[in-house]
């Protein structure tokens, strides 16, 4: 499969931005300056980026509590995200949502979501909008292996099939729902679940951008063509705990190290593109350094940004009341 150079560069930049964003948050969170809690997406970047590479601004996604990667891949303003996580009035949600509620409807980002399994029903609605308003758009629900067991998700797989919606259910399977393994919590297989709803099933290795890109392309094209919803099962590894501060005592001591070594989507991408002569190492180095600078600036800007004002407390509960 040939992928245009600009798409490759853009995808690498997105993945690197997510990685840098999350690694930096990991460091900053430890300083105690970031309020609340954050859930990091490190190690899973190729999933968000490989899927969103096939989406335009008018397509819709819904994300999870581990949503930074999806937001960045869908084009949400990185500086605004950082400010939001710092609880600043310059944040994309004016400091009122925080890490778990970053949203930008103008960019088709229906929100990260603090409720496990919150996204799939919403995506049925977004897909219904695309269908009835004839936008040619698709709606994509990212959800984890944990959420795959939620009634909301299973109901949504059914509803999307019954209504034949242009919906894509992306199950990001990182093997853990919080501190409980998917091998314990998920009965049967995702594949059989898709089959149970008469839904085409696709799966891929989420640490391989090219695999995600190719499989997601096929899955999304199916949904966009009006043939109904699909499931895309992406196998991933989570590099950090469920949330920052999680000691991960439920994981074997070398599990994460192994994942970082063998399943790093960024190094795999570099090896493949430079090895095949698709991209030059220098171009990737340039992106790495530009991203590092950008994230540094975003952190400094967020720290310096104004806090919300007292009147923000009462603002935007309703359109009118």
């Amino acid at each position: 499969m040939q992928i245009a150079r600009d798409i490759l560069l853009h995808s690498y930049r997105s993945m690197r931005t997510i990685r840098e964003f999350e690694e930096r948050l990991h460091t900053e969170f430890a300083t105690g300056e970031i309020p609340g809690f954050v859930h990091l997406y490190c190690g899973e970047e190729a999933s968000a980026v490989g899927v969103c590479a096939h989406l335009g601004e008018s397509d819709t996604i819904a994300s999870t509590h581990r949503g930074h990667g999806h937001c960045i891949a869908k084009g949400v303003d990185v500086e605004g995200m950082m400010a939001e996580i710092y609880g600043r009035s310059t944040g994309v949600c004016r400091g009122k949502g925080g890490s778990m509620h970053i949203a930008d409807l103008a960019r088709g980002m229906l929100g990260a979501n603090g409720i496990v399994g919150g996204g799939p029903p919403l995506i049925c609605g977004a897909a219904l909008s695309h269908k009835l308003l004839k936008t040619d758009g698709v709606a994509v629900a990212f959800y984890g292996d944990g959420a795959s067991n939620e009634g909301t998700t299973l109901e949504s797989l059914n509803l999307a099939s019954v209504w034949k919606l242009p919906a894509v259910f992306v199950c990001e399977d990182n093997g853990y729902g919080e501190a409980t393994g998917a091998s314990y919590a998920c009965a049967g297989t995702q594949k059989d679940r898709a089959a149970g709803f008469g839904m085409p099933y696709f799966e891929c290795d989420g640490s391989d951008f090219f695999a995600v890109y190719e499989t997601a392309g096929e899955a999304i094209a199916h949904a966009r063509s009006g043939k109904g919803p699909v499931m895309l099962h992406v196998h991933l590894a989570r590099w950090y705990g469920h949330f920052e501060g999680d000691a991960m005592s439920y994981r074997a001591s070398d599990e994460v190290a192994q994942a970082r070594k063998d399943h790093d989507c960024l190094s795999a991408f570099r090896t493949r593109t430079t090895g095949a002569g698709l991209l030059e190492g220098a171009s990737l180095d340039d992106i790495d350094s530009a991203v590092r600078t950008r994230i540094e600036a975003a952190v400094q800007a967020a720290k310096a940004a104004p806090l919300p004002e007292q009147e923000d407390l009462m603002r935007d509960v309703y359109v009118s009341y």
Partner: peptide, 25 residues
Amino acid sequence: ERVLDTPITEASYIGAAAGAAATGL
């Protein structure tokens, strides 16, 4: 298209209604 019978699954269709409302319907 405009009068949609749903399966008896309140979570998915009420959630779908919310999602549809946020996206133009």
